[in-house]
Design a protein around this nucleic acid. Structure first.
Length: 97
DNA sequence: GCATTGACGATGA
DNA sequence: ATCATCGCCAATG
């Protein structure tokens, strides 16, 4: 059921350790039947008062996702201790799992 | 029910 | 290395 998958996505998102990031494809692979697009849709559809670390989810290769809050996300990750290289990418060292 | 869109990913030029 | 295209799947109009 899709609600189950959405719950899996939110659960995995909440399990991301601080100072680490993960990708849409990774979450999609952990869940059953989810796709990166679906994960993205879940994040976008989250309510305003969510407490999930949505800013820890980036695109494949460690590139920030294309959304309006990318700058905020960058700032948040920087506050978490994540380091971006000069090309705006996150080293694989910060990837989770 | 069909067409468009989207916080993506992989592949090819 | 960058840019362009296709594929995926679900939601929305």
């Amino acid at each position: 059921m899709k609600d189950e998958v959405k719950e899996q996505v939110t659960t995995i998102m909440a399990q991301i350790p601080p100072g680490r990031v993960t990708t849409y494809g990774t979450i999609a692979g952990m869940t059953d039947g989810a796709t990166p697009r679906y994960v993205a849709w879940v994040l976008r559809s989250l309510p305003s008062d969510h407490v999930l670390p949505w800013f820890r989810i980036v695109r494949a290769g460690g590139v920030l996702a294309d959304h309006s809050g990318a700058a905020v996300q960058h700032e948040r990750l920087r506050a978490e201790g994540v380091v971006f290289d000069e090309r705006g990418r996150i080293p694989t060292h910060f990837f989770w799992p």
